[in-house]
Design a protein around this nucleic acid. Structure first.
Length: 383
RNA sequence: GUGGGCUUAGCUCAGUUGGUUAGAGUAUCAGAUUGUGGUUCUGAGGGUCGUGGGUUCGAGCCCCACCGUCCACC
């Protein structure tokens, strides 16, 4: 029998009196996470264009996300197991969360087919055929060895009609039962406990969301996730669904809103009681020249910065913010220099982590709403 | 010097037997991007078709001369 180090707990430190915002603490085998938190996306075991040293010391990332689908296809679970898990493989010694691949099967893979057993699909890399079942996805995530692993779900598009959404939700719930059973019947591979988060679905239909949240809450897992949002539905619908779901999900466990979002989305979701976030936006948009700042959005490719030698972001917390001028980084983007993507990614991630850190402070101080209102106004600006 | 080819958007090039307002890629200028293919998508601006003549109802296209350029030969 293996002995495990630390069981994950969620300690609620403070709730804002005027909203549902909370500040909490998640404990994992690889360290603590102060919430609300943003988790940089490191799909293939790396946060694109960013060194772990920058991620830790400058960005102050407390946890990163990685991906079952991508790591399974490449390098494969045999190599990850030989390495002793993803932490040993890539050298990141803080918490890791892996997404189950449910979303990627729908967003990336070709020729996907769903049935009750699971999802067959073709790799976007080499066209090879694969089958993901709930059991298989748990096995892969045991081999990867993330601290938090996700249930296998179907993520329907935001335009899905009620009939499809209902059927899909039934499948996701059946898959969840199998995920939990297999999770309970298997052991971690590297000597520390993993936690499994189930995922609420139900598209934009309140009764389906309620039904799903109740089903998920009853599983009594270490934490819970909200999926299937920011996939094409109106933003107001997303907020409405978050409110409905969070009334039902247990308040003493972390709530993770998957794949969201813009800085504004994150603040609105924090107000509604969400604790954890991940999104490709700071890194992907950064690689394309868009940076988020406390004064508004900047598109660094724009001609207006050609002769602007002021610092990237004088209010920014990252070392890149005062080390480089807008004009220089604009030049780097137009020259397609790799450093441009590195700088923009570091800046954006540092900004996102700063944002959730400030949110936490203001929740604890009891003035979150006032701060949020002020912040949103600035975030909506385009410089 | 002789012979031949080429000349169309900033760049690389399409352009049918001569027929509405000459296109593409790329670059430029903007916009999008929400559980990541460093991806992709959308829109905009940009051309006296080397110059000057000619033929024709009509020329980027046919004819002549010249400019520039490339190749071969002397």
């Amino acid at each position: 029998m293996l002995s495990f180090s630390i069981l994950m707990i969620f300690l609620l430190q403070k709730t804002d009196n005027n909203s549902n915002a909370r500040a909490g603490l998640i404990t994992t085998a690889h360290g603590e996470i102060q919430t609300p938190i943003f988790m940089p996306v490191g799909t293939a075991g790396t946060v694109k264009a960013v060194h772990f040293q920058e991620l830790k010391n400058d960005i102050k990332s407390q946890i990163i996300l990685s991906n079952t689908y991508h790591l399974y296809l490449r390098p494969g679970t045999d190599i990850l197991e030989s390495a002793g898990g993803l932490h040993n493989f890539n050298g990141w010694d803080k918490p890791i969360l892996t997404d189950s691949g449910g979303f990627q099967v729908f967003s990336l893979a070709q020729n996907r087919k769903l049935n009750e057993e699971g999802a067959t699909f073709r790799s976007h890399i080499d066209g090879s055929k694969h089958l993901f079942t709930p059991e298989k996805v748990i096995d892969i995530q045991r081999s990867i060895g993330a601290d938090i692993i996700m249930a296998f779900d179907e993520c329907p598009p935001g335009t899905a009609d009620y009939h499809y959404a209902k059927q899909s939700l039934g499948l996701t719930h059946k898959w969840l039962v199998r995920c939990i059973k297999h999770f309970n019947n298997t052991d971690p591979k590297y000597g520390f406990l993993q936690s499994l988060f189930p995922i609420v679905q139900g598209c934009i239909y309140p009764d389906l969301r309620r039904q799903s949240a109740e089903f998920i809450a009853a599983q009594n897992t270490d934490g819970n996730a909200i999926g299937g949002l920011a996939v094409g539905e109106p933003t107001e619908k997303m907020y409405e669904m978050i409110e409905i779901v969070n009334e039902i999900l247990p308040s003493d466990k972390p709530r993770y809103l998957m794949g969201v979002g813009t800085p504004q989305n994150i603040l609105e979701a924090i107000e509604r009681g969400v604790d954890m976030f991940d999104c490709v936006m700071p890194t992907r948009n950064g690689r394309n020249g868009m940076i988020f700042t406390s004064e508004g959005i900047i598109n660094l490719r724009n001609e207006k910065w050609k002769n602007d030698f002021s610092p990237l972001d004088p209010n920014g917390t990252s070392f890149v913010d005062c080390s480089y001028s807008k004009a220089y980084i604009r030049h780097l983007f137009h020259a397609k220099e790799l450093l441009a993507m590195q700088i923009a990614s570091v800046h954006n991630l540092a900004f996102y982590l700063w944002l959730v850190g400030e949110a936490r402070k203001h929740i604890i101080d009891g003035n979150f709403l006032l701060w949020k209102k002020n912040m949103i106004e600035k975030l909506n600006r385009r410089l």
